[in-house]
Amino acid sequence: MKLLRVGPAGAERPALLDGDDVLRDLSALVDDIDGRLLQDDAQLTAIREAAAAGTLPVLDAAGLRTGAPLGRIGKIVCIGLNYHDHAAETGAPVPGEPVVFMKAPDTVVGPYDTVLVPRGSEKTDWEVELAVVIGRTARYLGSHEEALACVAGYAVAHDVSERAFQIERGGQWDKGKNCETFNPLGPWLVTADEVPDPQALSLRLWVNGELKQDGTTADQIFPVAEVVRYLSHFMTLYPGDVINTGTPAGVALGHPDPKPYLRSGDVVELEIAGLGRQTQTLKQA
């Protein structure tokens, strides 16, 4: 299923995009797309049955904002340097264990919302990423099979980063990762049954129409199942938590000087095969 949330920011309603790309209203069945829903097999079955029966009301998509496809996000855990080609372009050694940092849930915006360049920023960068959405509590998992059983679905994430804040200002990476609007998510949450192999997805990103990133999740150093298993030994993952699993080569940081960092007025487009496409215009904060 392709689950999404539509409407004004803070007042989104749950919806579904059916097999004919018709937008359907889910608000009579559920109050939101969130962790509570993702762990409720009965409600998910009811949605599937209603979608198959064609009984869900049609929503007029014209002029309707698409919000992030997941509400009430618990936490966002991010994996850095998780693609062989990205590690190579930045000159970093391949990590022996996943590099972990956090983003606050309030960085999440819709897939077509404005992204703000922080005040004082000169190195705002792009990163297309596969987001993993947790649907079952995960703690001390023992196998990749257990890990994938905890995944509710997948989405496109844009892990916007400010490299000077991240690398040059001391402390941890979090300073360059948590500026407002720095995690567009969506347009859809695609349930795991529609993504049989998360290591066979192409990722692409364009800036002002120029292709900058063109990668595949097959190049991940730590695949999705290992990332979920690994994290479960350091923190408990709950339904509604999100994991951003890293970005392939092609970020501005990896370009020769002068690096083409983002500026107000730039347009970024990104997509992951089967998970949808985002577009954001940048503006000054």
Rank of each mutant, 00 (worst) to 15 (best):
V117S: 04
V117C: 07
V117G: 01
P118H: 05
P118W: 09
P118Y: 02
R119W: 07
G120V: 11
G120E: 06
S121H: 00
E122K: 15
K123A: 13
K123D: 07
T124Q: 00
D125T: 05
E127L: 08
V128F: 03
L130F: 06
L130T: 04
I134D: 01
R136V: 13
T137I: 13
A138F: 04
R139T: 14
R139K: 14
L141T: 02
S143N: 13
H144E: 15
H144G: 15
E145I: 06
E145L: 14
E145C: 08
A149H: 09
C150V: 10
V151K: 00
A152R: 07
Y154R: 01
Y154P: 09
A155V: 07
V156R: 00
V156E: 01
A157R: 00
A157T: 10
H158Q: 15
V160H: 06
S161Y: 10
E162Y: 05
R163P: 00
R163F: 05
A164C: 13
A164S: 12
F165L: 13
R169N: 15
G171E: 10
G171N: 08
G171R: 10
Q172L: 13
G176L: 02
N178Q: 12
T181P: 01
F182Q: 07
F182L: 07
P184S: 03
P184H: 07
P184G: 01
L185G: 05
T191Y: 14
T191F: 09
A192V: 14
D193V: 00
E194L: 15
E194F: 06
E194Q: 14
V195L: 10
D197E: 13
Q199K: 08
Q199T: 05
S202C: 12
L203V: 05
L203G: 01
L203F: 05
R204A: 15
R204W: 09
V207T: 03
G209W: 14
G209M: 14
E210N: 02
K212D: 02
K212I: 08
G215A: 08
G215K: 03
T216A: 13
T216Q: 10
T217V: 09
A218V: 08
Q220A: 07
I221A: 02
I221E: 01
F222P: 06
V224W: 06
V224H: 14
V224P: 00
A225N: 03
A225R: 03
V227C: 10
V228T: 13
V228P: 03
R229S: 01
R229H: 09
R229N: 01
Y230M: 07
Y230A: 05
L231W: 04
S232D: 04
F234C: 14
T236K: 11
L237R: 02
Y238I: 06
G240T: 07
V242A: 04
N244F: 13
N244D: 15
T247P: 00
L253G: 06
K259L: 09
P260R: 10
Y261W: 13
R263N: 05
S264N: 12
